[in-house]
Amino acid sequence: MVRMATRRAETTEESRRLLVAAAAGLFAEKGYRQTSFVDIAERAGISRGSIPWHFGNKLGLLKAVLDDRLQTVLTGVAPPGDDRSGDPLDQVMDFIRLPATRLFITLLAEAVEVDSPIREHYAQLHSALRQAVQSRIPAGAVPAGTTPEAFTVLLVGAVIGVHAQWRIAPEAVDLEAVQAAIRALALAGPRSG
């Protein structure tokens, strides 16, 4: 009996994982609104009735996808105090290169619409990204004349903008040069007259 329950739980978790992966790929390719349950079920190889059973509705599935991708991104960035943590700007630029981040750019266009069903989830996502970045900024690294919060918004905003440009035209965006430019601007400090 225990063995059957364990196997059922494993199957349920595997179905959930397959649905999240399929939805993430389709949302990145087609957008949230243009992706249907049928599309997701076909890609996952699972009955479309499994989607509401696992997630309640399409918005619940989107939240699971965003949570999954955010965790993928955050585990790719070293936590504060970790030997790998190093420079927060290096980590932020590494964020751009992660395959999981393509989804964030695809959905951004939908999220900025006032009536978008994903707007609130995106606001939470950006909040989590700002918290993650801010927690990794070493003491003394915030330029004079600004606050850690404003500096974090600048870094996250720069990354989002650079990321969008790089995804659209990677041959036109030299990520290393952009990183050097952000570093130069961030470390320049206040300018006089």
Score class of each variant (00 low, 15 high):
55 F>C: 13
55 F>W: 14
55 F>T: 04
57 N>S: 13
57 N>G: 08
58 K>V: 03
58 K>W: 09
58 K>N: 07
59 L>V: 11
59 L>I: 10
59 L>R: 15
60 G>M: 05
60 G>L: 01
60 G>P: 00
61 L>G: 01
61 L>T: 01
63 K>Q: 15
63 K>M: 01
63 K>Y: 05
64 A>K: 09
64 A>D: 08
64 A>S: 15
65 V>D: 02
65 V>F: 01
65 V>H: 02
66 L>P: 03
66 L>V: 14
66 L>Q: 11
66 L>D: 00
67 D>N: 13
69 R>H: 09
70 L>G: 01
71 Q>S: 11
71 Q>G: 09
71 Q>T: 05
71 Q>L: 10
71 Q>H: 12
71 Q>I: 07
72 T>R: 11
72 T>G: 11
73 V>Q: 00
73 V>W: 00
74 L>A: 12
74 L>K: 11
75 T>F: 12
75 T>N: 14
75 T>H: 10
75 T>R: 06
76 G>N: 02
76 G>V: 06
76 G>L: 06
76 G>E: 02
76 G>Q: 01
77 V>A: 10
78 A>E: 10
78 A>Q: 04
78 A>I: 07
78 A>V: 07
78 A>P: 03
78 A>T: 05
79 P>I: 06
79 P>Q: 09
80 P>A: 15
80 P>H: 14
80 P>C: 02
80 P>S: 10
80 P>N: 15
80 P>I: 04
81 G>I: 12
81 G>C: 13
81 G>E: 12
82 D>Y: 11
83 D>N: 14
83 D>H: 09
83 D>Q: 13
84 R>C: 02
85 S>K: 12
85 S>H: 14
85 S>V: 15
86 G>E: 08
86 G>N: 09
86 G>T: 04
87 D>H: 08
88 P>G: 06
88 P>R: 00
89 L>K: 05
89 L>E: 02
